[in-house]
Nucleic acid binder design. Structure first.
Length: 575
DNA sequence: CTCGAATGCGCG
DNA sequence: AAAGCGCGCATTCGAG
């Protein structure tokens, strides 16, 4: 329980003398300062965290939190000035000029040299991302600027929610990296050997990959055909009478030729080897953990990106290698049709929300009679959110508009705004970037008297492209906000669980995560929690409860639910 | 040699 | 070659 005079915020930054923490009351007024050194920072933070549970304010979460976690110190809440700056400087909710005067806050996030990929060692100091300002005065000034921008904004409570969620995401991203995803390198190796053959000692092609290549060359009657160079492969195929325009899988699959099957097999195996083969295993898995770099807010819509390791592209093929430590379990949970549910809520479309309640949303649409089959419901709804105009998806749109006019109206409006050069915002106030100068120039040029037909065609195409982007932005971005709220709530629930007493010395997740369930992976609408076996059921319940809480936090009493598929297992392989 | 574009495929 | 959004990464290849 915080003391009555406990600081609401503690701002950390650097001065000439070292690290200084400034204590702020609830109104943002400074009540004291505390000088620190790099070495006594973790202990002091742990003390203040336990006593006051403040919101920690810093320029850039990785710059501070990575070393705190290494020292065994977890914090509950923070305000990440870099991430919040990015939201506020472009949010349509913020009044013009409120963020004026900020310098250096558009910097890329700090990259720690010791933790970074080998390539970064080659960069000199000038090239390595150094992060935003960390000087205490600049940090305090930016924090004041941001508080002012929120207070004077069109919707302070939504923006506060967004900034808190974004900052929680920053903590979670560091914790995910610190804990890592439990990865069984031996299981991974078995999958590789099974599909590719033994790892060739000298490099080179594994046996089964080479065999597939040989079958392709035999079928093409071309013993030297190159399979890895697209232009050369295309010529070989043409010589053999396979008249494709590309070498992509789905076009090849439309042709009949003895070379096609082995070629598709070869491409599949070659992809596995180059993307997630032994080299990947050597580089990215150590000590039983895959530790990717998650990049919160890395996508314009607010989704996370990743950098290194391909964290967001792990093939389903390899899920079997994600294995809980001995004595632990994995809780794997994903949301069914997150984006359509979010769309129903943000548009207050009670009919769409009713179709989704307690069941597969596409089945609900079929039951309502809007379209005849689940497949059509899925194609139509995805088309509505992505802006499909042709094909089956385009043909089904009118039926969807009749059945769900509010939901369809929301995405149609967003598209129209984008086509007209406007900006759109998510539910909590993240705003799309304005059109590029080239885009605007193309539009105005097309309206001039001497505009050519080509000018007009290009302008229209660009306008439609941008419409599809803004159409999707509002839904994808709000879904990202829901996911942040889900994870933030889940993180608190997991930390509130009583730590297990049994000796789980085998845990390789580090001091902060050794005795409690903790998040281990996140992918847009899915989380993996690594939990001591005795707490796995509680962790699964927490995942479900957090989803309900996130729905209420964003959408209040609006009757939409977020249906989860939750599994408890030793591996992340899904049935 | 480095760098960017193009291609293809993995994920949501 | 996708129709229809958002990404990252490996590979090849031509330009400088």
């Amino acid at each position: 329980m915080p003391r009555p005079d406990a600081p609401s915020w503690i701002v950390v930054g650097r001065t000439d003398g070292g690290v200084v923490a400034a204590l702020l009351d609830a109104d943002g007024a400074e009540t004291g300062r505390h000088p620190l050194t790099a070495s006594d920072l973790p202990g002091w933070v742990a003390e203040r965290e336990a006593a006051d549970a403040p919101r920690w304010v810093w320029n850039d979460t990785p710059q501070w939190y990575a070393s705190l976690l290494r020292a065994g110190v977890r914090v509950g809440r923070c305000h990440d000035l870099r991430l919040c700056h990015a939201i506020l400087r472009s949010s349509a909710y913020v009044v013009r000029g409120a963020m004026r005067g900020a310098g250096g806050w558009d910097a890329a996030p700090f990259v720690a040299v010791a933790d970074s990929a080998p390539a970064l060692f080659d960069l000199d100091g000038a090239e390595r991302p150094a992060g935003p300002p960390d000087d205490l005065d600049e940090v305090l000034a930016e924090f004041a600027r941001q508080r002012g921008a929120v207070a004077s904004s069109a919707d302070p409570s939504r923006l506060r929610l967004l900034l808190a969620a974004e900052s929680a995401g920053a903590l979670i991203a560091e914790e995910l990296r610190a804990a890592g995803l439990p990865w069984d390198a031996a299981a991974h190796d078995r999958i590789l050997v099974d599909l590719l053959g033994e790892r060739p000692p000298g490099g080179g092609q594994p046996e089964k990959l080479a065999a597939a290549a040989a079958r392709v060359r035999a079928a093409l009657g071309d013993p030297t055909a190159s399979l890895d160079s697209q232009p050369k492969l295309l010529r070989s195929l043409h010589r053999a009478g396979v008249l494709v325009e590309s070498t992509s899988r789905w076009e090849l699959a439309e042709h009949q030729h003895p070379a096609i099957d082995p070629l598709l097999e070869y491409k599949k195996l070659a992809r596995l080897l180059s993307a997630n083969g032994w080299a990947w295993l050597d580089e990215w898995v150590a000590g039983g953990r895959f530790r990717p770099v998650f990049v919160p807010g890395g996508v314009v819509t607010g989704r996370w990106a990743s950098s290194g390791g391909g964290a967001l592209q792990l093939p389903r093929q390899l899920r079997e290698a994600v294995r809980a430590d001995p004595g632990w379990k994995l809780v794997v949970a994903d949301v069914a049709q997150l984006e359509p549910r979010v769309l129903a809520a943000m548009s207050s479309d009670t009919a769409l929300a009713a179709a989704a309640r307690g069941r597969d949303l596409y089945a609900g649409i079929v039951e309502s009679g809007a379209v005849p089959s689940r497949q059509q419901a899925k194609i139509a709804l995805l088309g509505a959110m992505y802006g499909a105009t042709t094909g089956e998806s385009g043909r089904l749109m009118p039926r969807l508009r009749r059945a769900y006019p509010r939901a369809m109206g929301l995405v149609d409006d967003a598209a129209r705004t984008g086509e007209d050069g406007g900006v759109v915002s998510t539910w909590l106030g993240r705003t799309s970037p304005p059109p590029s100068e080239a885009w605007a120039a193309a539009q105005s040029q097309a309206t001039e008297a001497e505009a050519s037909g080509a000018d007009e065609t290009r302008a229209r195409r660009w306008a439609r492209d941008r419409g599809r982007f803004t159409r999707n932005f509002v839904v994808q971005g709000t879904a990202a906000e829901w996911a942040l709220a889900w994870m933030a709530d889940l993180r608190s629930r997991l930390h509130a669980m009583p730590p297990v007493v049994e000796d789980l010395a085998a845990s390789r997740s580090g001091p902060v995560f050794a005795r409690r369930p903790h998040l281990a992976f996140f992918l847009h609408d899915e989380v993996i929690v690594h939990a001591p076996a005795s707490l796995a059921d509680s962790a699964a319940q927490a995942v479900t409860d957090a989803a309900a809480a996130a729905g209420r936090l964003l959408f209040g009493d609006f009757p939409v639910d977020f249906l989860l598929d939750v599994h408890i297992a030793d591996s992340a392989l899904k049935g």
